[in-house]
Write a protein that binds this DNA or RNA. Sequence first.
DNA 1: TCTGGGGTCCTAGGACCC
DNA 2: TCTGGGGTCCTAGGACCC
Length: 422
Amino acid sequence: MSAPVALIDCNNYYVSCERAFDASLVGVPVIVLSNNDGCAIARSAEAKAQGVKTGDPIHLIQGKVKAHGIRVLSSNYALYGDMQRRVVAAIQPFARDFEIYSIDKTFVDFAGFEHLDLVAHAREMSAQVREWTTIPTCVGIAPTKALAKLANAAAKKNPLFEGVADLRDETTRNWVLDRFAVGDVWGVGRATATKLQGLGIRTAGQLRDMAMKQARGIGTVVLERLIAELRGVPAAAVETVEPQRKGMAVTRSFGTPVADIDTLMGAVAQYAMRAGEKLRQHGLVARRVTVSFHTNPHKPERPQYSATRTLSAQPMTNDGLVILGLARRGVESAWREGYGITKAGIMLEDLVEERLRPLALFEGDTEKRARLMSAMDEVNGRFGKFAAVPATQGFKRDWAARSDARSPSYTTRIAEVPAVRA
DNA sequence: TCTGGGGTCCTAGGACCC
DNA sequence: TCTGGGGTCCTAGGACCC
């Protein structure tokens, strides 16, 4: 039997973060919207009970919002990121190794802890997170990551588990797998679920028992690995070191479609500067810069246009103005008149740590530019985003996305720390 | 589905090379 | 060039996840 793995997952994470700082949100239906205030990406239990689904466009559920007094918030990623650090700090003492899988999920390697009552151990871990952050969590324990994810879902769904499901025991495991819909298994999306159902495979138990060869036929090696994991054979380890990231992107939808190149260039300029800033924050430089923009693919009756252009930075760079220069060339070569552009983005690939950057033959005065960039970072950090911007970016941002109901940056911006009155 | 933004991994096909 | 086998690199697109 392989070493036990646990997945600790925060319940309704974004909503729970908001509730940690605003008691009026407790006990009432709450949803948090995506970046563009477009759709619901987090829902409290009360909002779920009113039938709000993940991804519901806000304009489609306005009736429900009014009828049930659902509180609607824009997302506040600075807050959620900061809260995550506190959650991880609470988890840390309960294992030697763990993997921060996403903003609200952490895999915990329980190797070497098998002699403990792991269910009790997991409950203590969960209680520690709650005490330090107020955030409720559920834990799933199993021999593989895929099964730990499934155990976690079971712990969330079935009150019998009281927040911690241990699927190391085969009888319990089979019981859960036979009742678990195949489409809810981690790694089975809509496309694969449809194909599996066509073969009569409806439960996680049936997926586990599927012939590998048949699985390869409808999926890829990824589906084969998933089946191995459902059988209790690990195909993925708990990754304790953060992997080098492969790419980085800044993309946004526009509030209103853009039909002229200057306006598009203004948006692209902002994304390019932001992309450079992100690279510097992570201590990275990039080789490939891709700029892309397209019309709204959800309006098939309109003429569509989609363009991407990839350019190389020589030498590798994290200079926003260099990225902007390349992106500008890309936009100029790809621009076509007569379309309403609804989304644009900058993607950076071939990333390398700045200190490992290969030296180019002719570098130019990179040091001066590096000082300019860090000066801009400082100005923007102190006086707010967009205090210092290149002229291309412009000051009118008609196309800008909406974010009307963002909560204050309680933990990351001194001016917005909540005041306590005696 | 009137649909956000930021990622990863995998596969297929073409260009090119020896 | 009416042509073998094998390798790498690149791009585009699909699928999935949070």
